[in-house]
């Protein structure tokens, strides 16, 4: 187990290096970027940039210093906001995004598994078709359209929820639902196909031949095994929630990290784009690692402790 995690950590760090290097290289190549000096900048920001990136130094020194700063959890100054660092943006924005994201993950997982289970148990009946139509719609409609439609009908027309901003739990309901729709649809489909697969397994027949009742078989033998693929979807789920938050936060005017990121893209705030990208990448890679470790602990067939440490 320990060796497995070490190995995974090692490859994670290599992946991170690739990301940081790519980010750094791309920013150097960007016209009007922080390293080219093509853009007129306020003197205070120019001074910050000089101090952080050492713009008078050769590129390899800049690159190395940048790596060191990242390792020290310092993402540098903002290109357009005076006196703001990327760390400030992360500290302000991430808790909001985290709250929203968690709410969305809960909704996606709970509703997705429920829909998928119903569809599988009522295979080829109207419940199945109904759940799968919802799921295909969820996958087919881009989230910004779903978010706008929710906002328009549920908030503006019916007044059930606040239209935008971030003050109370009620403010989080619509954004979380909009954010959850696509991954929920994926989870529903995944749960359904995985349930159907498990139900067709011989050991379900064995359980039946022991005289266990239908409900016991479903609870004890089916759902647990069927949910294993859903656990392995948690990695992509987190990444879907993260990128989804860029759009949802902007539409609902939520001051999270996603909105800051989108704003920095619009303003071509290169250093913020760079810093937040690296932060998001670290976040994703760590979550995926955690999910994989959890998966190994849940599924007895995977022996990450053993010799087959791959």
């Amino acid at each position: 187990m320990f060796i497995y995690i070490l190995k995974r950590l090692f490859f994670m760090i290599i992946s991170l290096l690739v990301i940081v290097t790519a980010t750094f290289g791309l920013m150097r190549a960007a016209p009007g970027g922080p390293f080219t000096g093509e853009k007129e900048l306020p003197p205070a920001i120019q001074a910050n940039l000089n101090a952080f990136y050492g713009l008078d130094q050769p590129w390899y020194k800049q690159y190395f210093d940048y790596l060191v700063s990242i390792a020290q959890w310092d993402f540098g100054p903002s290109f357009t906001y005076k006196g703001q660092t990327v760390n400030d943006l992360i500290n302000n924005g991430f808790p909001v995004s985290f709250y929203l994201g968690m709410e969305a993950i809960l909704v996606a997982v709970a509703v997705g598994i429920l829909l998928g289970t119903i569809a599988a148990l009522k295979h080829n009946e109207w419940q199945d078709y109904g759940a799968m139509i919802i799921a295909v719609l969820g996958i087919s409609v881009p989230s910004f359209i779903i978010a706008s439609v929710f906002q328009y009908f549920l908030a503006m027309k019916l007044g059930l929820f606040p239209v935008a901003r971030w003050d109370s739990f009620m403010h989080s309901v619509l954004p979380a639902l909009a954010l959850a729709t696509t991954p929920m649809a994926f989870i529903a489909r995944l749960t359904r196909s995985s349930m159907l697969e498990v139900l067709s397994n011989d050991y379900i027949r064995t359980a039946k031949s022991k005289g266990l009742s239908k409900n016991v078989i479903i609870l004890r033998h089916t759902i647990r095994n069927a949910l294993l693929p859903v656990v392995s979807y948690m990695g992509p789920l987190i990444s879907a929630i993260l990128t989804g938050s860029f759009i949802i936060e902007k539409i609902f005017g939520i001051p999270g990290l996603g909105m800051h990121f989108v704003t920095s893209i619009t303003n071509r705030d290169y250093t913020t784009i760079m810093g937040v990208t690296v932060f998001f990448s670290i976040l994703l890679l760590v979550s995926i690692l955690l999910v994989d470790i959890a998966y190994g602990l849940i599924d007895p067939r995977i022996q990450i402790a053993g010799k087959k440490g791959d």
């Binding site: 011989d202 022991k210 009742s213 239908k214 095994n225 007895p300």
Partner: peptide, 28 residues
């Protein structure tokens, strides 16, 4: 009925299947 069969299956009549590889629940 299904209910009545539950008390016969596994109690009065037992069954063994062809493939022991797949007939046991792998996670139990």
């Amino acid at each position: 009925s299904d209910r009545e069969m539950e008390s016969i299956r596994g109690k009065e009549i037992g069954m063994i299947f062809q493939d022991p590889m797949t007939s046991l629940n792998p996670t139990m």
